[in-house]
Design a protein around this nucleic acid. Structure first.
Lengths: 234, 234
DNA sequence: GATAACGTTCCGCTGTGAGGAACACACGTC
DNA sequence: GACGTGTGTTCCTCACAGCGGAACGTTATC
C-alpha cells in the first residue's frame, strides 16, 4: 500500500487490511525499522529508502561480501565499534554487512538496509569517486525526491573535503547520536567497488577519530584491497 | 538477500539466516507467490518483478483506486469472473485492485502484485498507447532483463493488434490456465491512466470472450471514464 | 550402488504476533 | 471548560501461524 498509494496513516492501513489499529501500527513500525517507511512530522507514513532499491544486478556482491566479512570482524573487534560494508546503487547505499560492536544487541540483523548515499559516510566516500557533474545529475531534481539547493551545496563541499582527505564523515546525519567514518574500497584497476565504515556513539567520536578509528579503518581498507587484487572477482 | 546477492538457493538462505531448510523454503515460496522471487529451471531463486518496482510517486492512485473499485465489483459480479485494475510503472504493471470471482478463495489478497507489462492484458493495452519507438526504448536490452528479439517482435505485433481492436489479450502468458482481456482507461484529455481487465480460466475463455466478457469490459471502461471525467483528479 | 547434498512435503509443538483495552493528544462543537 | 470524536501509541494476553525435525524424491559425484 505504501508503495502504491504513496502515503498512509495507521487508520487507513488497519481499515484496508481488515486488522486492528494496534496491529497496523506494529507492522508499520517494523517497516520503519527496516527502512521501507519513514514518518513525517504529522505521523504520516511515507515510502522509505529501502523501497527505492531494486535488485542489485551485480553478480559479485555475494563474493565481495564473503571476502570482506572477516576483515570487518577484525575491524570491529579492534575498534570495539560497529563495522559496515556497503555498495552504492544509484543515489542510495546498501549495507551488505553490519558487524555490531556489542554482540549482545541485534546480531547481524539489520544488514541489507538502504540509506541515502549523501548521508552515510561510506556513501559520501563512494560519491566522491564520481566527477561533480555526475553527482549533480544523480541528485538532480528530476523526481519528487530530489535534494534542495541547500542540501546539494552541502553535499558538494562535503565531497570536496572527502577527495582531499581520503575519508568521509557522518555526524548524526542518518541517526541521532551516531557518527561514522567511511572510505572507499578500490579494485586492482583503481575503480571504487564499495566502502567500509566504522560507526560509533557521537559523543566519543571526536576523541577517538584520529587516534584510533581512522588508522584502523585505513588499515582495514588496505587489507581488503590486497585480497581483492589477488582474487580478481572480475 | 535476494535483492543484494541476485540469486539464492534454499540452503544458502537457511544458513545465512540461521533457520531450518524447511523454513527457508516456505519463506522463499511466499516470496514467489508475492512476486518478489522467481525460480529458474534449476530451482534457483532470482529477484521477481515486484522487486523492480519502486514506489509509484503518483498521488492520484489512491483516489483512482477508490473511484474504480465499485465498477470492478459490478464487472466481476456480472461476468462471474475476476476483475482487475492496474497502472503501468516503467516496464511493469501494478495491480491496484483484484476483485476475485469466487469470494470464497483469497479475498482481495493479492492486490499490489507486479507483472511484466508485456505479458499482462492490461499491460499490453497500456503499452499500445505509446508510440512504437518508445516501447522499444523501454524494453531495450540495456539492463540484464531486456527482452529477446523474438519476444520484442511478438510484443510489437501484439500491440499493433491492440491498437486495431481496442483491447488486449493474455492467454496463459502470465499464469498457466488463466486468460484475460484488458483495455486502457483514459482521462478527459484522452491520455491513458490505467487499465481494467477480466481474467478467467483459459478453457472457457474463447467461448465467453465476444459474447459476454468483451461487452461487459468495454461497458465498465466507459462507466469509469465517465466518472473520471466528472471528478477531475488532475 | 553407495553417499551426499540438495529441494520439497508433512505435521505437531511453541513462541510470536493479533487485537482488545486503555492512554495521550489534537481537533472541533456547544 | 466540558464533551465528543478522530487520531497515534503502549501494554498484555491468548490462539494460532510459523518453526523445525523427520521423511521422501531427485540429482550429482565417486
Amino acid at each position: 500500500m505504501l508503495r502504491d498509494y504513496g502515503s498512509l496513516r495507521v487508520a487507513d492501513a488497519s481499515q484496508h487490511l481488515g486488522i486492528s489499529r494496534s496491529s497496523a501500527h506494529r507492522l508499520l513500525q517494523t517497516l520503519v525499522f527496516r527502512g521501507f517507511a519513514v514518518q513525517d512530522e504529522a505521523h504520516v507514513y511515507l515510502p522509505g529508502p529501502s523501497m527505492d532499491a531494486g535488485p542489485a544486478r551485480l553478480a559479485w556482491t555475494k563474493d565481495f561480501r564473503r571476502l570482506c566479512q572477516p576483515h570487518l570482524e577484525v575491524l570491529s573487534r579492534r575498534s570495539r565499534e560497529s563495522a559496515n560494508l556497503m555498495i552504492r546503487v544509484g543515489r542510495n547505499v546498501r549495507f551488505l554487512v553490519m558487524v555490531r560492536a556489542r554482540t549482545v544487541d541485534a546480531t547481524h540483523d539489520r544488514d541489507g538496509v538502504v540509506m541515502p548515499a549523501n548521508e552515510a559516510s561510506g556513501g559520501k566516500a563512494l560519491l566522491a569517486e564520481l566527477p561533480d557533474d555526475e553527482v549533480r545529475a544523480l541528485f538532480g531534481t528530476d523526481a519528487a525526491s530530489g535534494l534542495s539547493d541547500l542540501e546539494t551545496t552541502k553535499l558538494m563541499t562535503d565531497l570536496a573535503a572527502v577527495r582531499k582527505h581520503g575519508f568521509a564523515l557522518n555526524v548524526e546525519e542518518t541517526e541521532r547520536g551516531v557518527a561514522a567514518v567511511g572510505t572507499a574500497i578500490h579494485d586492482r584497476w583503481g575503480t571504487a567497488v564499495g566502502a567500509v565504515s566504522v560507526s560509533t556513539r557521537a559523543d566519543r567520536f571526536a576523541e577517538r577519530l584520529n587516534g584510533v578509528l581512522l588508522p584502523l579503518l585505513l588499515d582495514s581498507r588496505a587489507q581488503i584491497e590486497r585480497d581483492l587484487a589477488e582474487l580478481d572477482l572480475g
